[in-house]
Design a protein around this nucleic acid. Structure first.
Length: 204
DNA sequence: TAGGCCATCTGGTCCT
DNA sequence: AGGACCAGATGGCCTA
């Protein structure tokens, strides 16, 4: 156990040295982070977005040493070492983890993290766009992602029914309001909820 | 305070 | 080989 901790310490010090020497990599990292910050600030986030209250880019405030902070998984690994290191498979995994903490891997991992954040940002912007296209009440709080998807499904189903019926959309919705909308789908958003939302829509 | 929601990190897998 | 995609783990924030 002691030598494991020692090794982790060693990795840490070598990493400090590594990052200190690799100005080009740091510049690359900074450029990517800067790009993502620009990407974020240029994005059309809704007023519901909580990005302002919670930093989307903790890395932007990171020092070089922050890159060496152990991940949750590594923590779990360290905690489980005493009980599981007798298992050869665990020993192999542990070696792999130690290997994965070496500098070249960290550079790739950091770049992958940035790409992943960028990818999630694009997904979130798509959700924001979708939220703008589903019927919501003016006073309603921001829809969660799952609710946005479910409401969109129900909304599309209802629009299809309106199309098939050939009726005037507004009168169709009014009829639904009066008779109680029977949604044929399994959607969570059904009956009065969806039609009540649609009653807010200006059909003209 | 528990539960919901979310962002982030991470390793694995698939694709180009 | 490198990037995209995915799911699991984790921790923070918010609300009932």
């Amino acid at each position: 156990m002691e030598d494991v901790l020692f090794d982790l310490d060693q990795d840490g010090t070598t990493d400090y040295a590594f990052w200190g020497q690799m100005d080009q990599n740091f510049q690359f990292q900074s450029q990517l982070d800067t790009f993502l910050l620009d990407y974020n600030s240029a994005g059309q986030l809704s007023p519901w977005s909580n990005f302002g209250s919670q930093s989307m880019f903790p890395d932007a405030q990171l020092t070089l040493t922050d890159l060496d902070v152990q991940s949750p998984g590594e923590d779990a690994c360290a905690e489980g070492e005493t009980s599981s290191m007798d298992d050869p498979l665990e020993v192999t995994k542990h070696r792999a983890r130690r290997l994965s903490s070496h500098p070249p891997y960290k550079v790739q991992r950091h770049a992958a993290n940035i790409r992943e954040r960028k990818r999630m940002l694009s997904i979130n912007s798509a959700f924001e766009e979708l939220r703008c296209h589903v019927p919501t009440f003016p006073y309603e709080k921001r829809l969660s992602k799952i609710d946005t998807l479910r409401l969109a499904i129900a909304y599309i189903a209802l629009l299809r029914e309106i199309l098939v019926s050939g009726c005037d959309p507004k009168s169709y919705v009014d009829d639904c309001m009066k008779s109680g909308y029977k949604n044929h789908t399994n959607a969570i958003w059904n009956t009065s909820d969806l039609t009540a939302r649609l009653s807010w829509i200006k059909w003209d």
